[in-house]
C-alpha cells in the first residue's frame, strides 16, 4: 500500500437520494406539527442548551429531514428537554415531542423495528 500523504476528501454534499429518511418519516407520522416548521430559529434563540453548546434545534430538524442521521444522533444528546422551544414556536410545532420521537425512531432503527 502506497502512502500518498493524503486521502480522498470526504464529500460534504448532502446526498439526498442515498440518505436514510426513516427518522423523518417516523417523526412526520407521529408528530405531524413537525411538518409546519419554517426554520425561523425562535427555538434555537430561546434554547438553554444552545447558549452553552453548539446545539441548534432548527438545524437538527433540517438534518432529520435531509437524512443526515449520524449528525442527528450526535446532536440530539445535547437537548435537556426543558420545553422552552415549544413555548416559543410561532407555528405551534411540538418541538419537545419532536425530540422524543427522534429518539424513539433512532431506537427503533437500532432494533430493526422500522
Amino acid at each position: 500500500m502506497i502512502e500518498f500523504g493524503y486521502n480522498i476528501a470526504k464529500d460534504r454534499q448532502i446526498d439526498f437520494d442515498k440518505n436514510d429518511k426513516r427518522i423523518s418519516t417516523y417523526v412526520r407520522e407521529n408528530e405531524p406539527s413537525f411538518k409546519t416548521c419554517i426554520s425561523c430559529g425562535t427555538c434555537t434563540a430561546t434554547c438553554s442548551a444552545a447558549n452553552f453548546t453548539d446545539f441548534n434545534f432548527r438545524k437538527l430538524q433540517l438534518m432529520v429531514r435531509r437524512g443526515e442521521t449520524l449528525e442527528v444522533k450526535e446532536e440530539i444528546k445535547k437537548c435537556m428537554l426543558c420545553g422552552k422551544c415549544y413555548l416559543a414556536c410561532p407555528r405551534g410545532v411540538n418541538t419537545r415531542n419532536v425530540i422524543i420521537q427522534i429518539n424513539q425512531a433512532i431506537e427503533k432503527i437500532e432494533n430493526h423495528d422500522i
Binding site: 500518498f4 500523504g5 493524503y6 486521502n7 480522498i8 476528501a9 470526504k10 464529500d11
Partner: peptide
C-alpha cells in the same frame, strides 16, 4: 500535498 485529498475528491466525484 496536504490539500491533494480535495483535488483527487473532485476527479473521484
Amino acid at each position: 500535498q496536504a490539500n491533494r485529498g480535495y483535488s483527487i475528491a473532485c476527479s473521484h466525484k
